[in-house]
Simulated assay, not measured.
Amino acid sequence: MSWVAAILLAGLGFLGGAMLLRRERGLWTLFAAALVFGLAGFAWQASPALPSAPGQSMKDTASADTQMMEARREFFAATDPRSRYVLTADAFARRGRLDDAAGMLHNAVQENPNDGEAWLALATVLVEHAGGRLAPPSLYAFERAQALLPGNPGPAYFLGIAALREGRFEDAREIWAQGAAQAKPGAPGRDLLAMRLAQLDEIIAAMSAGGTRGTRP
């Protein structure tokens, strides 16, 4: 499934739900929250650039980590090189070995503190390792990635996804809006971030109409 198709289906689902719940506006919040988390899960785990594949066993614990890695590469040109450490860390992630991936990425940023993709990869791995939570080490890694990748919307995108997973919709919106404003024209992933931001704006507006807004830390 492509990103555009996923967003279109989500939008149609939201409009349909809003029509069904038009007399119960208080239920919009729950419906919108479920949709947001569905989008967050798709954005974090899906590999929209890959063709459809047969369903995999639930025993394949490395699947989500592999998809996370592939999603990260959506924000880099195919010609952008990855360091040997990032390549090795990605191989560990494919096997679900997040501890080893994080260790390899620590080596990457120690050897080359200016490797923006290594910092972004480390940030996302640390979030996954923490069960989807943003902790000080992952926040620091995101900050370094943002500083080293000016004009690249990737750090803002994944930081926003992490905020969504914590239920902080408005924080995610602010992160995405800033990332979209600072993204260079034609940057990989720029259009994706803009579409995701528009979708989130619709959901937040509906949630506000229902009387509930996303939480802040």
Score class of each variant (00 low, 15 high):
18 A>E: 04
123 A>P: 10
90 D>I: 00
114 N>V: 13
125 V>K: 04
113 P>N: 10
189 G>C: 05
136 P>N: 01
72 R>I: 15
176 W>G: 01
23 R>F: 01
181 A>K: 13
217 P>E: 06
173 R>P: 00
142 F>G: 03
113 P>C: 13
112 N>R: 15
26 G>E: 12
202 E>T: 13
9 L>V: 11
211 G>S: 03
37 F>P: 05
115 D>M: 11
135 A>D: 01
24 E>Q: 11
126 L>W: 06
192 L>P: 02
71 A>Y: 06
8 L>K: 13
28 W>M: 07
82 R>S: 10
77 A>Q: 06
35 L>P: 10
202 E>H: 14
193 L>F: 07
121 A>E: 15
137 P>W: 01
109 V>R: 07
66 T>A: 14
143 E>N: 09
215 T>A: 08
51 P>E: 14
13 G>E: 09
147 A>Q: 13
53 A>R: 15
178 Q>G: 09
15 L>C: 02
90 D>Q: 07
135 A>F: 00
79 T>G: 02
177 A>F: 01
78 A>G: 10
37 F>M: 15
215 T>V: 09
132 G>D: 00
70 E>C: 04
80 D>H: 06
144 R>K: 12
59 K>S: 14
209 A>Q: 13
144 R>A: 05
104 M>I: 02
73 R>Q: 15
173 R>I: 00
87 L>E: 14
69 M>R: 12
216 R>K: 07
158 F>I: 03
103 G>E: 08
36 V>H: 12
58 M>C: 08
121 A>N: 15
47 S>C: 07
67 Q>Y: 06
167 G>A: 12
144 R>V: 01
167 G>H: 10
92 F>A: 06
67 Q>H: 14
73 R>H: 07
122 L>P: 11
217 P>V: 04
52 S>M: 15
4 V>S: 12
132 G>C: 02
71 A>W: 04
2 S>R: 11
200 L>N: 12
10 A>L: 06
170 E>T: 10
122 L>G: 12
27 L>K: 14
209 A>S: 10
142 F>C: 01
137 P>L: 01
161 I>L: 15
171 D>R: 10
217 P>I: 00
191 D>V: 12
150 P>R: 08
191 D>F: 03
216 R>T: 07
199 Q>F: 08
27 L>S: 11
38 G>P: 08
138 S>F: 02
98 L>Q: 08
20 L>C: 01
3 W>D: 13
4 V>R: 13
164 L>D: 08
148 L>K: 04
133 R>S: 01
15 L>H: 03
48 P>Y: 10
107 N>T: 01
170 E>Y: 07
128 E>A: 14
200 L>S: 12
216 R>N: 03
53 A>C: 08
44 W>R: 14
168 R>V: 03
17 G>E: 08
1 M>N: 10
13 G>C: 03
185 P>G: 04
46 A>N: 08
2 S>I: 06
27 L>R: 14
122 L>C: 12
138 S>C: 03
167 G>Q: 06
216 R>L: 05
208 S>E: 14
83 S>P: 05
192 L>I: 12
